[in-house]
C-alpha cells in the first residue's frame, strides 16, 4: 500500500486554494495514531505472550552457565528419553504419512457417498483433548480395559510401555498429513492424472511422477507439523506412560519429572531442545508455506485464464 505519509488532521487541514499541506488519508486507512497504537498493542501482546516465554526457556536453562546446561544431556535417562522420542516420532510420522496419502488419494480423486463425514472423522483427533486421547487407549489396553487381561495373559504390555506411547502419539498426530493434502489435491483435480492414465502410466507411476511432485510441499508441510507434535506431545503420552524412569519417558515427560524434582536447570535445558525444535519448525513452516502458495497459484492459473 501507500507510504504511510498521512495527515491525521486532514479533515480540518482544508486550505482555501490548491492542495492541503499533506496528502489526504485514504478511505481505507486509519488515522496515524490509531495505526501506530494498534501496531504497538500487537507487538506488545505478542512479545508478552509468545516471545517472553520462549526466551525464558533459554534463560532458565543457562542460569548456571554452559557447564550444567550440557551436563543435563549427558544423563543416561535424558539420553534414553531422546532415543524414545526419536523412536516414537520415527514410527508415528511415516505411519500417518502413508495414511494421509491413501486418504487424500481416495478422497480427492474419487467421488463417493459420505465423503464429508469421512473428512470430519479424519479431523476428529484434533477435537479430542490430549488427556482423553491417552485415556481411550488405557480403556482399551489397560489392565482393567477391554483387551488388557487377554494381553497380559499373552505377556504383551501396551499401556505403561513403548507401544502405548507410540499409539497415543499416532492418534494425536493422525490428521496432520491428510488435512494438508486433501484440500490441495481436491483443488488440483484429476485432469493431470487422467492424462497420465490415458498415456498408459500405471497407478504407482501416476502417483510417483504426477501426483507427488504436485503436492510435495504440502506433504512436507504436513510432515513438519506432524513431527513437531509427535516429539512434543505431553498430555496423551503422560496418561499412557506410567512414568517409568529411563524406560517409558519421552523428552516432554522427562522435562516434567526433572521439574517436579526441582531440578530446574536440567528441566529447562532439556526443554530448550524442544524449544529449538519449535523454532526450526516455525522457520521450515514459513519457507514451505510460500512454496505451497506457489503450488496453489500454479493450479489456479489455467482456470482463471479460461474464465
Amino acid at each position: 500500500m501507500s507510504s504511510g505519509v498521512t495527515n491525521t488532521t486532514a479533515h480540518t487541514a482544508l486550505t482555501a486554494r490548491g492542495l492541503p499541506a499533506k496528502r489526504l488519508r485514504l478511505a481505507t486507512e486509519e488515522p496515524d495514531w490509531v495505526r501506530w497504537s494498534l501496531i504497538a498493542i500487537s507487538i506488545g501482546f505478542l512479545t508478552l505472550f509468545l516471545l517472553v516465554p520462549l526466551l525464558a526457556v533459554f534463560a532458565e536453562a543457562l542460569r548456571k552457565g554452559l557447564g550444567p546446561y550440557f551436563a543435563s544431556f549427558a544423563d543416561p535417562t535424558a539420553l534414553s528419553a531422546i532415543r524414545l522420542t526419536l523412536l516414537t516420532a520415527g514410527i508415528a510420522v511415516p505411519a500417518n504419512l502413508v495414511f494421509g496419502l491413501a486418504a487424500a488419494w481416495a478422497i480427492a480423486k474419487f467421488e463417493f457417498f459420505g465423503k464429508s463425514i469421512l473428512i470430519t472423522l479424519i479431523d476428529l483427533p484434533f477435537a479430542i483433548s490430549p488427556v482423553i486421547s491417552g485415556l481411550i487407549y488405557v480403556l482399551l489396553f489397560g489392565m482393567r480395559g477391554w483387551l488388557g487381561p487377554w494381553l497380559s495373559g499373552h505377556n504383551v504390555q501396551i499401556i505403561f510401555a513403548v507401544p502405548g506411547l507410540v499409539l497415543a502419539t499416532v492418534f494425536v498426530t493422525f490428521p496432520f498429513v491428510a488435512r494438508e493434502l486433501i484440500p490441495l489435491m481436491q483443488e488440483q483435480g484429476t485432469e493431470e492424472e487422467q492424462a497420465a492414465a490415458v498415456l498408459g502410466a500405471s497407478g504407482w507411476q501416476i502417483l510417483w511422477r504426477v501426483t507427488l511432485p504436485n503436492v510435495k510441499w504440502a506433504l512436507l508441510y504436513g510432515v513438519i507439523l506432524c513431527n513437531a507434535r509427535a516429539m512434543g506431545e505431553f498430555g496423551a503420552v503422560s496418561v499412557v506412560s506410567g512414568h517409568i524412569r529411563g524406560k517409558t519417558n519421552t523428552i516432554p515427560l522427562h522435562v516434567e519429572i526433572l521439574y517436579n524434582e526441582y531440578n530446574f536447570v536440567a528441566a529447562f535445558a532439556v526443554a530448550s531442545l524442544l524449544a529449538l525444535l519449535a523454532i526450526v519448525t516455525l522457520a521450515a513452516k514459513n519457507v514451505v508455506e510460500s512454496r505451497i502458495r506457489r503450488e496453489l497459484q500454479q493450479t489456479l492459473e489455467p482456470s482463471t485464464a479460461e474464465a
Binding site: 516429539m231 506431545e233 523428552i251 516432554p252 522435562v255 521439574y259 519449535a278
Partner: peptide, 9 residues
C-alpha cells in the same frame, strides 16, 4: 509448535 510441557514450565 512449542510442546505444551515447555510452555507450561
Amino acid at each position: 509448535a512449542l510442546p505444551t510441557a515447555v510452555s507450561g514450565i
